[in-house]
Design a protein around this nucleic acid. Structure first.
Lengths: 245, 245
DNA sequence: TTTATAAACGTCATAAATACGTTTATTTTT
DNA sequence: AAAAATAAACGTATTTATGACGTTTATAAA
């Protein structure tokens, strides 16, 4: 009973992972692969988001959390439900139809899409039975179903979100430098900021707390490390109602 | 075929209407009423959002548009899909269970929620077969299902949205005064602005265009009327990437 | 010791926000 | 016709934030 699937509802997860070393915002996708019955040719060979049907007694949020856990082993990561996709033509290209016939999917499936924010390095892809793989958001592979669209809409939502809330720190290690924050903003938004102004602005915030620590193992002047205090942020945060239209 | 319903997917519409005379942001809901078979008592007597099951060949957006049209006769109104609600416990209070049994609903229905922004005065409620009624957002009646939650989440989304995009003008008549804009912002956000500063800020915008017209029929100095130019807004709009965390 | 370089600090001009005070145009009252 | 009342509209000074730059500092490598 607990494991009965709702036939036409799924949850798809866009897993964003930031790689602080390569300074790349990545998306985790898995292989979709199907050979013909004779084995003579490959019918479907592309990537898809990780998703799953919702169980009868499962919440939507719970389903997203489960999908992430099965994929990465991680729990307690930042997630956001950002949109439902359910147009009747969302699964109508040739490869999708072959796949759907093979898997016995319902043709009219509505998917509730979530995105997660985490660190690429936190995910262990050693025993990845589904050939999961990270791709930079700017270099996505061929994607099945409407998953390219879903990823790009998640990315747009993330861009807006990171301007108004400090979600950026979900993508960074606990201890970071000011320049690392700047690089991540630039990587997400695709624009450059003046380092001196960016630095001044960030350091001024009470919830960006300098640590008694510096970078180690760098071959130049080591940078000051900072942390983000959720406590301070939430305590001092009063909505400023700045109308910026 | 075209009129076959997907059994467990619905679209619910939160219709926001602003009444410029009473300065009230309202929500349009309809009566949910059910008598016992003997007619001796009223089993269910509350209000619900207008929603409907999605047809097999219908897009989600199309379904929302259809629901609004059937309810108000209006088309081409601003709408936004803001969240899907589908937790297994969303329809479990007593009245909901009575209703569901009577109507033959699927117990596990996922609803894709939209909100609309329009003017209360644009809706003609004369021949409202479902006893539709406007309620101020601050004075909602008893609501069935999880519809209070849905309305309040729509309202939160609207609050955020109106700070970053000029959706406010969807709620106002084509010609408005500066003070009317201010009153609407205050009504939505629940805060007061300094009129002199608000006025200066708004008038400075290129897309707030003064008309050769003033208020008529007011018993004090008549105010200058303005319009919002979508054209100018979209043409001059460049993303400013202002990080306001 | 010098050099290279990322990190960090500093300055100035301009723009925006905040907090108020004053004047103006109109209707209503006298 | 004048005076009173009042919402609309305009004004000003102070503080704060932004944008565009130049300079100094701490460190590892040469």
């Amino acid at each position: 009973m607990k494991f009965e699937k709702i036939p036409n509802i799924s949850v798809d997860c866009v897993v964003f992972g930031y790689d602080i070393n390569t300074k790349s915002l990545n998306v985790l996708v898995m292989k979709r692969y199907l050979e013909s019955k004779t084995g003579t040719d490959v019918l479907v060979d592309d990537y898809v988001l990780t998703g799953y049907h919702v169980y009868e007694h499962e919440t939507l949020d719970g389903c997203a959390t489960r999908v992430l856990k099965e994929l990465t082993g991680l729990t307690n990561q930042y997630k956001k439900q950002f949109k439902a996709f359910g147009n009747p033509d969302r699964l109508t290209n040739e490869k999708d139809l072959i796949w759907i016939e093979n898997e016995g999917f319902n043709l009219r499936t509505i998917t509730i899409a979530y995105y997660f924010l985490l660190k690429t390095e936190d995910v262990d892809l050693k025993n990845n039975k589904h050939q999961e793989k990270w791709f930079p958001i700017k270099e996505l592979p061929e994607l099945g179903f409407d998953h390219r669209k879903i990823i790009l809409e998640a990315y747009e939502d993330l861009k807006v979100k990171c301007l108004s809330e400090p979600v950026i720190f979900k993508l960074l290690p606990d201890k970071f430098t000011i320049n690392e924050v700047q690089e991540l903003y630039q990587s997400i938004l695709g624009v450059d900021f003046d380092n001196r102004n960016f630095r001044r602005k960030l350091i001024k915030k009470k919830y960006i707390i300098p640590l008694d620590e510096k970078q180690v193992g760098v071959s130049k002047k080591p940078a000051q490390l900072y942390m983000f205090s959720k406590d301070v942020y939430e305590k001092m945060f009063q909505k400023n109602y700045l109308i910026s239209i």
